[in-house]
Design a protein around this nucleic acid. Sequence first.
DNA 1: TAGTGGTCTAGACCACCGT
DNA 2: CGGTGGTCTAGACCACTAA
Lengths: 275, 275
Amino acid sequence: MHDMMASRPAPTPAPELQAAHVSESASKLASNPSFSPLYRQIKGLITRSLQQGDWKPGELIPSEADLARRFGVSQGTVRKAVDELAAEGLLLRRQGRGTFVSTHHEERVKFRFLRIVRDAAGDGARPVPQPMERQFLECKRSRASQEVARTLGIKVGESVTQIRRLLLLAGEPVVYEDIYLPGPAFRGLTAERLESYRGPLYALFESEFSTRMVRAEEKLRAVNASAQEAQLLRVREAEALLLVERLSFSYGELPAEYRRGLYNTRHHHYRNELN
Amino acid sequence: MHDMMASRPAPTPAPELQAAHVSESASKLASNPSFSPLYRQIKGLITRSLQQGDWKPGELIPSEADLARRFGVSQGTVRKAVDELAAEGLLLRRQGRGTFVSTHHEERVKFRFLRIVRDAAGDGARPVPQPMERQFLECKRSRASQEVARTLGIKVGESVTQIRRLLLLAGEPVVYEDIYLPGPAFRGLTAERLESYRGPLYALFESEFSTRMVRAEEKLRAVNASAQEAQLLRVREAEALLLVERLSFSYGELPAEYRRGLYNTRHHHYRNELN
DNA sequence: TAGTGGTCTAGACCACCGT
DNA sequence: CGGTGGTCTAGACCACTAA
């Protein structure tokens, strides 16, 4: 047990990692009830570095060999940790170049969370039909209602930023949604900034508000359109609309955005894969 | 290159695997444009054994060490292949016991494809609310319509088995769906068998019709209830319903079932996770 | 106690990328 | 060319399960 640690050469670990690494044994931590394998501990350390912003979205992280030296483990162990993070979409591996922090700026993963597809589209169709046009109807500060507060895990009446917008695909209004962002982090967000920004909202949040959305949960229902909703989406009143409530999480399972979207599914559908 | 193969002891591979293994070099197949790494070839061989029914759902497959000997590769290579198949839900690993072929009979994965959740349910709620009751309204042979034929990849007018049923959760009708099964494989399916069977439909298909559903694609829309649909689901006519079209695939990406379901989302919702 | 999957290591070679 | 991730091996030890 102990001689394993002694025989391992001093890895001169990065300062912010040393404590965690030294406090945990590099061996299997036998008889420890809260045991977690080494590669998961490494994964936790990398995740913490991502949370802390040591490595920012789009940036190159240290090579596997480098990380293995820092953590004082073998490259294979680092590899398994990075593999899982890549599978979860937090990191992106590129052979010959290195491992990068995932970002919503990449062309490949734009509109990663928008599952709308045009009906006519074949199997290999892009997830989000083009051309896409956005109309921002509103951007204001308000107080969290009970529903919004509960969902975002904040207190009723706390400050939230609210965005109301319309998405048009090929000229047809398809999505009408309210977006709620918690706390003072998004104070600087204005209607003008939204109008002028090219690219997905999540890319804007990442670049200018230090909030990266990592994963999301959605609840889907069918509802009848109100008069106002019908007018905006150009459907008949009481026509069926797909209600999509999305709660997005940033690093560390932190709820960071709540969306309530109404989808006009006359010529588009929500696509899902089950495994 | 060649001496690698020569120096490797004869693995006495299983007959059905020998051809593929011998025809491929165990080394990296350099300069082969259709190159696939060894572990993917192994994965392909295992998948083929699953398709052929060499190992049936619920059964124990050979140990990693055993497979490694058969294929003449290291255990680590087999491990990586099995890892991917387990991640895709085709295999199930159990420490200390072995690796099993996934089955819809397991308690853990019952109703794996049914994403309906009661609204009140908390985060840790079971995916499918209990008690669940099923009413089979119809089970008949018919000819594939153009839509069904196109979806299932068969010819218009070919024989299909059609099931119409209603699912009730806590006494409330929530799902009304038409199920289309291709070809003569399901000839023996009767209303009586459906009534008497306990457990998920997919478990029945697996046990008695040698068809295991591996993955599925769904298209979701909102539609207004027809008079008949409204009556069955006990909602108002024209009330919004969630239309879920599901195409399920068996081994080898074979389309094996098409479902058209209407979900009453008054007190339940469709839950989805985005990564 | 024997056998299984799970973790970890050390080292080799390859494919890919930018310089 | 050097550095990166990708593949593959061989061997050790651990945790879990069933007999």
